[in-house]
Design a protein around this nucleic acid. Sequence first.
DNA 1: GTAACCAAGATTGTTAACAACTTCGTTGCC
DNA 2: GGCAACGAAGTTGTTAACAATCTTGGTTAC
Lengths: 227, 227
Amino acid sequence: MAASGEPAAGEAVALVVNALRDGIMQGRFAPGQRLPEADLVELYSASRGAVRTALVQLENEGIVERERNRGARVRPISLEEAVEITEARAVIEGLCAAKAAARATDEDRHRLRALGKELGEAVAAADVMAYTRINQQIHRAVRDIAAHETAGLMLDRLRTQSVRYHYTVALLPGRPSIGLTEHLQVIETVCSGDPALAEHTMRTHLMSVVEALQQLDANLHRIVTPG
Amino acid sequence: MAASGEPAAGEAVALVVNALRDGIMQGRFAPGQRLPEADLVELYSASRGAVRTALVQLENEGIVERERNRGARVRPISLEEAVEITEARAVIEGLCAAKAAARATDEDRHRLRALGKELGEAVAAADVMAYTRINQQIHRAVRDIAAHETAGLMLDRLRTQSVRYHYTVALLPGRPSIGLTEHLQVIETVCSGDPALAEHTMRTHLMSVVEALQQLDANLHRIVTPG
DNA sequence: GTAACCAAGATTGTTAACAACTTCGTTGCC
DNA sequence: GGCAACGAAGTTGTTAACAATCTTGGTTAC
């Protein structure tokens, strides 16, 4: 194994899958970059069989492309796809918000509101890193309260595909402020116990992320193609 | 594939994945049944490496479970999970219905209404097989009209998990009649071009399937545990 | 000077053998 | 008679070698 830590008992392919997925999600491999099996074998100190199986699985997860006899590469995602992914997130997280509203305990409500307060402090301090982290924690909390395993797995998959686009949205001017308002609405409606309302605010929030994505894309094009 | 036909050029693992998935979905392997690698090697005339990779992928798809050093088996799905899957389908197909309503051409509308008519004839003839087939065609048509690739892939995955429960719902007494009404409503609202309305009818339809699932489960328990 | 072609290198697809673990039946002991 | 340790068979986890395919660079003919 790469890590000197534990012998990790086995299942070498799972280790490679996780390491590679993290690497791609953290941007250590650029979209479109080739992923030769030999390189990955050396990088992760795994056998070729493990690397190979890991690539098949990541292809199945949609973050790697493979062409027969031509190897694997990091799959680039287009704006259209990022929008689709966010739309799908909108309806699934909407489902989670509805379930969460129906199931939330007093303790859950307390935790959500605490996260809302933290988010406000991050925005006040203009701390983008903290904003992004707490943002994820809020969505994660709603998902956990919903206790909907199928929805959770689907969100996992969508997140791995969209994360590179995702974290940049917070960099748009004015975005954290908008996001704060929307998240507070989501939190309050989930805590109110009204499933339909909670679903609505969650969907509204994520549709606003769709708009932010499109705006972000327009900005990128403006930079790439200077008038 | 067992068929002697073509050497199939390559990618042996994909062949095994498809064959095994079909086998499980068609009920040729019972839930909980063990799937020893050696048996699959012989059954599909593939190498163990291909079989092994296929099992990893099917585990990722959620229709097979594997335990370290203890092999793979067909993953049983509980009622709770079937309900979760249908709830997830409800929101995603709701998204598709909304998109479809916004995008449908005159030709699309014609095709949908033709399918609706066919479904009515199948119900009138009490032809359960035809009902199930046309049912799937209608959902497939809405999905195609929506042209939402991400949603389509998610539905593919959900379908492979739930298909065994799914086709039995049509056997409930009175179910085809209810299903006909709901499908006709879905078709008409999609054709009306109102996204919100189309989404609503599609979700209502699938929530009614959830109820049918629970009713089916109650019936099964009554059979298994005779008072 | 360009285009087709060929050979060497690099990369992936496939298979077989080896090692480790679990399970189940047996034997010996309490 | 029951329980625990032992061992053999079966199954999975891992690795290495071999075969097929693609890419690349140079050469040759036109």
